[in-house]
């Protein structure tokens, strides 16, 4: 199993991984399972997550911040919000600083990701992780776990970007001109959500949680089984 080769049945593979892995944090994570996948979306425990990185290549770039917030379809309690800064192994590039606005001086005293990855896993264990653009987050988290535990970290994700693509999808003969943007901020504007400063991991996680609430309120049955929407 890798980010490019996801299991058919998450419940089974969690049970298997729980047996296989040896690092305690990962074991706890897999043992917690993903019961929410078989529940209707309105009953599933959700947690929105976002990471900022030094670049786009999971094999050479590092995670420098993680933000997450638990929620359900009614409320997003900010008291569940968590945020971590991580000191990267390589230098910060000017391009990445321009995006996330985290500077060298801010992170030189930050801990390494390895020192709090356990905490992150505990915070998301047993919940359905909601992400905007799983294609970035999934390989980065996978790489991080391989580096720090030597064991894989893979879990189902509910991708608001994929949901939005489905929502605005039209057959090719109905498409005119430019396709609507699927960027987080653009998606939010379609639901009258406020504009937040992007690329701060916790605010992006919150943005993502709000977006899912709005998408469900407008387009999706909240009784749909969660697994049918996730990847």
């Amino acid at each position: 199993m890798t980010p490019n080769n996801l299991p058919e049945n998450w419940q089974e593979s969690f049970a298997e991984l729980a047996q296989e892995v040896t690092s305690p944090a990962l074991k706890r994570f897999y043992e917690a399972g993903v019961a929410g996948l078989d529940a209707p979306l309105k009953d599933a425990p959700l947690v929105a997550l976002d990471i900022e990185t030094t670049g786009l290549d999971p094999s050479s770039d590092d995670i420098i911040s993680i933000g997450l917030v638990e929620f359900n379809l009614q409320t997003i309690p900010l008291r569940s919000a968590r945020y971590w800064l991580a000191k990267p192994h390589g230098p910060l590039t000017a391009e990445s600083v321009a995006i996330h606005e985290i500077t060298h001086s801010e992170i030189q005293d930050a801990p390494r990701l390895s020192s709090f990855l356990d905490e992150v896993l505990d915070a998301i264990a047993g919940k359905i992780v909601v992400i905007h653009c799983a294609a970035i987050e999934r390989p980065f988290l996978y790489e991080a776990a391989m580096k720090h535990y030597g064991e894989p970290l893979l879990f189902p994700m509910l991708d608001t970007m994929a949901l939005e693509a489905g929502i605005i999808h039209k057959p090719w003969w109905q498409r005119f001109g430019r396709q609507p943007s699927l960027r987080l901020d653009s998606c939010r504007q379609r639901y009258n959500l406020p504009r937040y400063r992007a690329h701060q991991a916790l605010i992006d996680a919150l943005s993502c949680a709000e977006l899912l609430q709005a998408q469900v309120a407008h387009h999706l049955e909240d009784t749909r089984i969660t697994s049918t929407m996730s990847c």
Partner: peptide, 14 residues
């Protein structure tokens, strides 16, 4: 206080 806020999305009419 900000840490204690609950965020809620309401669709028109709710």
């Amino acid at each position: 206080m900000v840490k204690d806020i609950d965020v809620q999305y309401l669709r028109a009419g709710e």
